[in-house]
């Protein structure tokens, strides 16, 4: 299997590439953390695309149980069917619903399994998956069969740090923290998304964007995905670089700021600072 080097629409830093390749080579799950909007989930999608294998996404919610990733026994429909006298009822296997891990284990090609936002789940969730991730096998009690992975899937786990993960779980994973990209990296990312964007507009937009990120006291700093949305809007509205330049000089609120600042307190703060700045001059 060839090494991952990012794709035509995903820029992976050297460190990230190494982390991914180490995880692939050593068959360990890779835990990805980072500010929201730095492309954690996208990594799994692009990894699957670049390797040409299936992506099995498992999005975690606060009510998700580890067992649901393995299989679920649908006792209620079996009970219902038994009351209706359905023939299906005699085979319990008809009521076992395969989970995402089961799919990943039995897939023909080595798939990419994305366990998205693992921190949203219950505290016990990661602990319940320890053995399954380690040995890559589990037992189905209802049918007395043992599911063993044909090959160990590439597992990407993302976390937004809302809960601390248990140590025992962390020991089994590799870890990478996606740092917020610097200006040159940012340029590369934007180039990938908007190949025809005018250089001048981009320079102005990036300068504005990083100014905004440096502003103290923002509740939610805009991140890469917000920048890309904003650029999309700028292009769609055909805003000229001169307007942006002027905005930056006068420190007034940038056009279409709704894409960047998602919190009315932040917008308010910005307006206040802009007002103070004008007052000084």
């Amino acid at each position: 299997m060839s090494a991952f080097q990012g794709t035509s629409n995903y820029i992976a830093s050297n460190e990230l590439q190494l982390a991914v390749n180490a995880a692939i080579a050593l068959e360990r799950p890779l835990l990805i953390k980072g500010e929201p909007g730095t492309g954690k989930t996208m990594l799994a999608e692009e990894l699957a695309a670049s390797l040409g294998v299936e992506l099995i996404p498992w999005h975690i919610k606060s009510t998700t149980k580890a067992q649901q990733g393995l299989y679920e026994y649908d006792a209620v429909s079996r009970l219902r069917d038994s009351q209706l006298g359905d023939e299906k009822v005699k085979d319990i296997g008809n009521y076992i619903i395969k989970g995402k891990l089961w799919h990943a284990f039995t897939s023909d090609n080595r798939p990419v399994l994305l366990i998205d936002e693992i921190d949203k789940a219950d505290i016990e969730f990661p602990n319940d998956l320890l053995l399954e991730l380690d040995k890559m096998e589990f037992f189905v009690y209802e049918t007395q069969e043992k599911i063993v992975a044909k090959q160990r899937p590439i597992i990407i786990i993302t976390s937004n740090n809302e809960k601390e993960l248990p140590d025992a779980f962390l020991r089994r994973c590799f870890f990478h923290y996606i740092r917020f990209p610097e200006k040159t990296e940012m340029q590369a990312i934007v180039d990938v998304h908007f190949p025809k964007i005018k250089q001048k507009l981009l320079d102005e937009a990036l300068a504005l964007f990083f100014n905004l990120r440096d502003m103290p006291g923002l509740k939610k700093k805009p991140s890469t995905s917000e920048l890309i949305d904003w650029l999309k809007l700028l292009l769609a509205e055909d805003i000229s670089p001169e307007v942006l330049h002027e905005t930056r000089q006068k420190k007034v609120i940038p056009p279409l700021h709704g894409a960047l600042l998602k919190n009315e307190q932040d917008v308010h703060l910005f307006e206040k600072l802009a007002f103070m700045h004008r007052g000084q001059r």
Binding site: L18, D167, L170, R171, F174, H176
Partner: peptide, 8 residues
């Protein structure tokens, strides 16, 4: 760092 450290 990827392998040894598990928390930023």
């Amino acid at each position: 760092r990827t392998i040894l450290v598990k928390d930023e």
